[in-house]
Computed example of a mutant assay.
Amino acid sequence: MNRDLQIANWTAVCALADIVPNTGVCALFNGEQVAVFHVDDGASHVYAIGNYDANSGASVISRGLVGNLGERIVVASPIYKHHFDLRTGECIEAPEHSVGSFHARIAEGKVWVGA
């Protein structure tokens, strides 16, 4: 295993192949639901944010549509369509309902999430 993955306390949450490009999945990380997204713009990138959408009161962010608003890569929550920045977790329409963001990376064919 890659040494820096062990040092940083990263957790493998799924195989990269388990996530269809430009979609998300829900994973359990440290007892919390995390929405993990695989964005492919010619190169694969992964992002992880909280899965709970306070605007709707449901854990559905991982089921949202991935896109962009200007330079921001976002996911639109499937219920009220609020946009969440995949890098920061900020809810663009209602910043008071922003979610946490997590470090995410691809290594050894897996998606790793770190606090």
Results as ranks from 00 to 15, higher is better:
1 M>N: 12
6 Q>E: 07
7 I>Q: 14
8 A>E: 10
8 A>R: 11
9 N>K: 06
11 T>Q: 15
14 C>N: 08
14 C>F: 11
16 L>G: 06
16 L>A: 12
17 A>Y: 03
19 I>M: 09
23 T>F: 15
25 V>I: 15
27 A>T: 11
28 L>I: 10
30 N>Q: 15
30 N>E: 15
33 Q>R: 06
34 V>N: 07
35 A>P: 04
37 F>V: 03
37 F>H: 05
38 H>E: 03
38 H>T: 08
39 V>P: 00
40 D>W: 00
42 G>L: 02
42 G>T: 09
43 A>P: 08
43 A>S: 14
44 S>Q: 04
47 Y>G: 02
51 N>Q: 06
54 A>F: 08
55 N>K: 09
57 G>R: 13
58 A>L: 15
58 A>Q: 15
60 V>R: 06
62 S>D: 15
64 G>H: 05
66 V>W: 12
66 V>I: 15
68 N>Y: 11
68 N>T: 14
69 L>H: 07
69 L>F: 07
73 I>H: 02
77 S>T: 01
77 S>R: 06
78 P>S: 01
81 K>A: 02
82 H>V: 07
84 F>N: 03
85 D>Y: 00
87 R>M: 12
90 E>Q: 13
90 E>H: 05
91 C>A: 07
92 I>W: 04
93 E>N: 13
96 E>T: 09
97 H>D: 10
97 H>K: 09
98 S>C: 12
100 G>I: 03
103 H>E: 13
105 R>I: 13
106 I>V: 04
107 A>F: 01
107 A>S: 01
108 E>D: 11
109 G>I: 02
110 K>A: 05
110 K>H: 01
110 K>I: 06
112 W>L: 04
113 V>W: 02
113 V>I: 10
